[in-house]
Design a protein around this nucleic acid. Sequence first.
DNA 1: ATAGGAGCATGATACAGCCT
DNA 2: AGGCTGTATCATGCTCCTAT
Length: 318
Amino acid sequence: MAVSFDDKFNACIQNFTNISKPDYTKSELNYYADFVELTALFSNQDGITLGDIQDRFFGEKDYENAGKRDEDEIFLQDIFQIISERVLIYENDYPFSYTESEILTLKPDLNTNNKLYLSLLISSKLNIFNEFRADLTTDFETISYSVLKQFLPTNSKVKEFGKNTEYEGNAINKIKQLADDLDLTVDDYELSQVGERNNQERGLDIIGWLPFNDKCGNKIILLCQCACGKQYESKQHDTRRFENYLKFYKTKPQHTMFIPYSLINVRAKKFYHSDYIEKEYLIFERKRILEYHKDDTFENLESYKIVNKCIEFMKSGV
DNA sequence: ATAGGAGCATGATACAGCCT
DNA sequence: AGGCTGTATCATGCTCCTAT
């Protein structure tokens, strides 16, 4: 009854084929750019052009007036503008080449970071890679863990609190153990509000802190949440709950999110979708994750296998 | 068996823009 | 003005998964 890897993969390909045009909101060009990159990944080795995407998105459409047609044309150009930007900002990490002839194609030889890029791309399209959802979300947490370790000074502590956690018992017990590790006390009333039968993590996936040898609770602490789904906005409150459970001492924890989407807007030196990102959050998005992933964590993950399968699939030229 | 969590789909509602 | 249409937002519910 076990579904094989190949079956799952084929189901994903089918999911992708069934979507001729994803219906994100018009302004979400990033998401469309991701979809275009996926199209290039699953095309045969010839790559794709703006015209191919035009056919895929609007092939059936009868235009009543030229204005609408122009509007769609500009929309497509804006998407490819984002892709041109990505070529520049991701440099060697970018797994695609976008040539002078304006063909988007997968590079022939991909290094680990190129594959990690593809993994993040796939993880941000869980509706398509639905069959691998569990693998992709747990692997994303593992990747985020490794990134945070690389990002923080070498003596800092980084722990997984979600999947693969070393903390045991129900949520209340996990939080108590964590408080102990951090030399903090818990707010008993707030903690009593957590169900005894809640065995999970209450929205904290990873935690990192800069330790001191003393037992004083005054320290820099990062509370991290990993979110693959498109609704990462709505998960931003999750780590805030820990400000109720734990009595932080003279410092505020740094709320942090890991997101597989590409959010850096180079020209503005800010984020795309900036209005979705709350105050006082540190964001690790696609570009930053690639910048700080330096060890071999990724190569041992299921998502690495999935990426390789995609590449193999593309080269077989179906 | 059960609870909790992740993520998505769906449907109701409100609203802006456009046509007549 | 009235009505049509596409779009955005929100709450709800569904499915799948995991830990106990």
